[in-house]
Amino acid sequence: MSEELVKIQNLKTSFRIKDDYYAAVDDVTLSVNKNEVLAIVGESGSGKSALAFSVMGLHNRAKIEGDIYFKDQNIPKLSPAKLNQMRGDDMAMIFQDPLTALNPLMTIGDQISETLFLHNKNLSKEKRRERVIDLLNQVGIPRPEYIYDQYPHELSGGMRQRVIIAIAIANKPELLIADEPTTALDVTIQAQILDLIRELKEDMDAGVILITHDLGVVAEMADRVAVMYAGQIVEIADVHSLFENPLHPYTRSLLNSVPNADEVQDKLHVIQGIVPSLQYLPRKGCRFASRIPWIDESAHEENPEMHEVRPGHFVRCTCHSQFYFPEENKEEHSDGIS
């Protein structure tokens, strides 16, 4: 059994809309091990990014309940000073959009150097520069001495993402959170960046939380996968188990809605309806029920819980056992506009 690095228990992250709080992450429990890639898959509004931001303590105005244990600390309970000490040092984050995640008025070198400075004030300027050049080399940026003094707008998207990765790994974090790290990049660059993240994980023995909507990326990268829908984890399993034997209706629908690389199908599967927005999420019963109306109501649990179907393979609600795809849903146009 591998060593547990992060343990998230009953995490609930709520945002305030007008006068009420609405949970974007609702009762999430999971763990990340050392030298493991845990992929969190979901569509927009599933709460996957809110989950990542909670772990990094980056939510300013959210209400966070539950626990996130990492290195004997409980992140939601930390003081700002202690949190700043851990961020960028013990845990770090890679962002989605390399075009906006760098400060346009600071040189590449200064931006990487800042992380080093923040966590080791004794490092001399020269030493920091040396280390930055090392890092630029490590993430595969050519001519690092020259790039050091460049500004972000002078670099391509792929190069900027490498800079963001260099910032993230500067202090050899034990936990790396990658939030859609390749979504904004070209395919050939995507492959390179994924390889890079994988290599770095091996080198640093780090745990990686990979947030993505791309099932191909999951299949390539993940050791374990958590599927999120409407703020909850609906299925969590080892990657092979999940792709070979997906259980939850949402996981199965999602897998069926991507074009298959091996055979060309005429129609893709379409999930009926739309993801309800935060304010209108059903807070009781199976949250996916409204999108599979042909399944009998009795198939759902009243308070859906996670069930361990096989060792390490958990699925929420009992509806998966009675789920089937409808013959040919001719109604795919009607996505119910009121």
């Binding site: 191909g216 299949a219 092979h240 792709f243 897998l255 991507v258 298959n260």
Partner: peptide, 9 residues
């Protein structure tokens, strides 16, 4: 070759 393969095996 760069297209991710959806089969983890």
């Amino acid at each position: 070759a760069a297209i991710p393969d959806i089969d983890p095996k």
